[in-house]
């Protein structure tokens, strides 16, 4: 009897992380082997967890830009941005946009970039 209880408790403990994840809406868990690093050290095997379907969050593919003068009207001076400067061209990405879209596909100074958050 004691053994059975202990076993139930052990199973419950083992299942707990999984149950917590289910509660958080995990759809799937799979293994991913990280690539070896530049020094040839083998990559770790890690869990890749699916929370939402592909494109459940919409990345920006055709970003539109305005000048600093125009943006001044609606940007708060303390608002956080990611700033990028390549080849003399500069783009600012408000964090409020990045945190909702996660990825902006863009060109800056002729370089194709993915700006991610």
């Amino acid at each position: 009897m004691m053994f059975a209880l202990a076993a139930v408790a052990a199973v419950a403990v083992l299942l707990l992380p999984f149950l917590i994840r289910l509660g958080k809406g995990v759809m799937d868990v799979e293994e991913a082997v990280l690539p070896d690093d530049a020094q040839g050290i083998p990559g770790r095997t890690v869990e890749m967890v699916t929370l939402i379907p592909f494109d459940g969050i919409q990345a920006i593919l055709e970003p539109e830009f305005v000048t600093a003068g125009e943006a001044r009207v609606w940007m708060d001076p303390s608002e956080q941005v990611l700033g990028l400067s390549i080849g003399g061209e500069r783009h600012a990405y408000p964090i409020s946009m990045l945190s909702r879209h996660e990825i902006v596909n863009d060109f800056v100074g002729g370089t194709p970039v993915a700006v991610t958050w």
């Binding site: 305005v66 943006a71 600012a92 990405y93």
Partner: peptide
């Protein structure tokens, strides 16, 4: 550069901004 809009604009006044 992760910074405030004011500081980015001050150092890069020619910047464009994601609409």
């Amino acid at each position: 550069t992760q910074t405030s809009w004011a500081l980015w604009m001050d150092t890069h006044p020619d910047t464009l901004v994601l609409d």
